[in-house]
Amino acid sequence: MARHKTTSAAGMTRRERYDAQQRRRSLIVAASSTAIVLLAIVLLVPMAPGWEKVQKSFFNGAVLAKSFPKLLDAFLINVMIFAWSAPAIAVLGLLIALARDATAPALFPLRIFGAAFTDIFRGVPVILTVYLIGFGIPGLGLPRPWNSPYIWGSLALILTYSAYVAEIFRSGIDSVHHSQRAAALSLGLSDRQVMRDVVLPQAIRNVVPSQMNMLIALQKDVSLLSFIGPVEIFRQAGVFKSLLANFTPYVGAAIIFLAVTIPATRYADHLLARQRKERR
């Protein structure tokens, strides 16, 4: 072994040792520059003239401690609304995508409907859809559980997000190379079978990272339902704000959101990076 004496006792080649050294060096540089920036913020920000007031009304430890458990409880409502909306969005989004790409002449109305659906719900701000559906439909005077803002608010989110999700699915279907379709057809599979067994599985896999990002956006937009009634986390923070005359509960709510969305975003980015590497 080690014919050219480039292998050290630790079993590392010359190249590996060099790379390890480089990695260590860049790690040290990155760590120290980050420390300097953080230190500057910690030292300089409190020197700003309004800092004390800001600290009292936004970063009040006592208020945070008092409101945090209730905020967490309220966040469960967000999670609940998210949990039943997300699967509905996935299913409806996929159906709309398939409807828009349907070629059979009998399905032409479906295509038109799909196109109109995506145009309308992507064209209207989410909050407007939430208002119109969330106030409008219960306004018809429906009997008890059917006038719940949870139902109609969720529906508004489902409709809006399905429109976006459908477009992402369509781009995924487009991204499957046409030679895959030709190969499947040449085996005698029908158009439907080709879509279900060959195109869709690849299309869905290709768009997982993008759909993850939609889920993250949805998780945040659940808060819009607070405007039509449900006391979810944003509304709960507002209640505390009025009660305690302090903005810290909003910061608490933000912390809870970030605890969920940052790992999710990191994970989506990780998936995307991996996919990019595989493509190369």
Partner: peptide, 15 residues
């Protein structure tokens, strides 16, 4: 198509 098989230059296996 079920009676006539075809094989392509780029294999086109389903990944």
């Amino acid at each position: 198509r079920a009676r006539i098989g075809m094989v392509f230059q780029n294999y086109n296996l389903f990944p």
